[in-house]
Design a protein around this nucleic acid. Structure first.
Length: 423
RNA sequence: GGAGAGUUGGCAGAGUGGUCGAAUGCGGCAGUCUUGAAAACUGUUGAGGGUCACACCUCCAGGGGUUCGAAUCCCUUACUCUCCGCCA
């Protein structure tokens, strides 16, 4: 969420930049400012009332000590009145705070000035493209056909055990999954990220911390008996490491990588675009996350993009990078780069990574701060991205590496798989 | 699952219903000494709101209550630890 003080000081600029998201925030921003003014006025009233009762209480204490019980009793009556007033003011105050917070939860992050204008994914700006799109042999198949042909992924079996969107990986398919996870983790670790194994279920407070709750509740699986949520991404447990945390400036940057399965209900998804590995309820992902000094966060973002580029170059997959337009930008992000791999047999691009700078938007809600060198507490910047999401990378490998004799394994993965061909 | 004990500042750890936003230690910061560093010594150092700045207000796990007054008493929820039970 945005900081009220920031909104107060940069009202016009915020409205202007939020317009990139195709929303007119004028009313919301004005409401925030008005609610905040009301809140402050109430706070002053409330504080003064409390100050008065505090003074009286001390007097009463002293009177009792000096044995002037009668005088004390008179003062007691006064405090009862003040207490009533306090209660009423408190109620009013809490209502204002709640209204203000609810409003703040609904205002998305302010896009970085370089975010392109636009409404849909068609308006995203391609900033980079690399890798040759292979010419496939006659009769080349989409990945779900290949998975069946070589018996490496069983979608129907998943239907039986759980339901649609929970595939079963078998034999070399399972081994390839494990190889990809290990390879990604190794690459991230080499780049300086510390590997973490994180819980796959989180509590309510963590859901709020990263903004899945309250509005995106329907997208997570909820374990009602224990009131826990299955993580939709490692971002949730990894970011919540830093909930209510005060760091030292010297601690920054903090860099974390972790593999987790991800669980998403994806309610309402259907059609050809969700076939095979394109969209699943359970999938694997290796995530990278950084907590940065505000001065460094955009350099760090560029660094993350370079890092993922290197991996895709090593895998020799054709990919492109998009700078998301205002309409496609996630609620919490200030700037996002998406990576897409070309799925040759489907003749379409598949998103495999999304790397974002959230600036202070997450940190504000998390209360993630650092003590700067002047001794003041300042909000950190947070960034995260996939490095990488497995299913669509796998789809890209299966389709782009298929030959008439089977599916070749990218060279860098062979040490991890122990085989160089699926046939 | 049963019984008991706990949860206090960045960390560790005291705390009698009013003198407690809270001893002490560590850590951090500044200084003295030193060519420099370490050590030692001295000083300083919780967070949030509010204010031009003060004043002032709030915060001792979360929520509620008793009281003129609560870190302290009561209720409740969550979590941690110990013992027992169960168990990969």
């Amino acid at each position: 969420m945005l900081q009220v003080a920031f909104i107060r000081d940069h009202k016009e600029a915020i409205i202007e930049r939020l317009a990139k998201r195709n929303i007119d925030a004028t009313e919301m921003i004005n409401d925030v400012i008005n609610l905040d003014e009301d809140r402050r006025a109430l706070q002053t009233k409330l504080d003064n009332t409390k100050a008065e009762s505090n003074t009286l209480s001390k007097e009463i204490g002293n009177l009792f000590k000096s044995g002037e019980a009668q005088k004390a009793t008179i003062l007691k009556e006064k405090t009862t009145q003040l207490k009533e007033t306090t209660k009423l003011l408190e109620q009013e105050f809490n209502e204002k705070v709640e209204a203000l917070n609810e409003l703040l939860y609904r205002i998305p992050n302010v896009p970085n000035p370089i975010v392109p204008s636009g409404n849909t994914d068609e308006d995203n700006e391609e900033t980079y493209r690399e890798g040759d799109i292979p010419t496939l042999h006659e009769g080349a198949l989409p990945h779900w056909e290949l998975a069946k042909k070589y018996d490496i992924i069983d979608f129907e079996l998943g239907n039986k055990i759980t339901g649609a969107g929970f595939p079963v990986y078998k034999g070399k398919g399972a081994r390839l999954q494990r190889a990809l996870i290990a390879y990604f983790l190794d690459k991230n670790t080499e780049a300086g990220y510390t590997e973490y194994q994180l819980p796959h279920l989180v509590n309510e407070a963590s859901g709020f911390g990263t903004g899945q709750l309250p509005d995106k509740e329907g997208q997570m699986y909820h374990v009602t008996a224990d009131n826990l949520y299955l993580i939709p991404t490692a971002e949730v447990p990894a970011t919540n490491i830093f909930r209510d945390t005060l760091l030292n400036e010297a601690d920054l940057p903090i860099t974390i990588t972790g593999y987790t399965p991800c669980f998403r209900r994806e309610a309402g998804s259907y059609g050809a675009h969700v076939r095979g590995l394109n969209r699943l309820h359970q999938f694997d992902k290796v995530e990278i996350l950084r907590v940065e000094h505000p001065d460094n966060s955009y350099d760090a973002l560029d660094g993350m993009v370079e890092h993922v580029k290197n991996i895709l170059v090593e895998l020799k997959l054709p990919y492109r990078i998009l700078r998301l337009c205002g309409g496609d930008l996630g609620f919490t992000a200030a700037l996002t780069y998406d990576f897409e791999v070309f799925s040759t047999a489907q003749n379409r691009w598949l998103e495999i990574s999304s790397i974002s700078n959230f600036e202070t938007f997450q940190a504000n809600r998390l209360k993630l701060r650092f003590k700067n060198n002047d001794g003041k507490n300042e909000l950190c910047h947070t960034l995260n991205g996939s490095s990488l999401a497995l299913p669509r990378v796998l789809a890209g490998i299966l389709e782009n590496y298929q030959t008439e004799n089977g599916i070749k394994i990218p060279e860098v993965l062979v040490p991890y798989t122990g085989f160089d061909m699926i046939s």
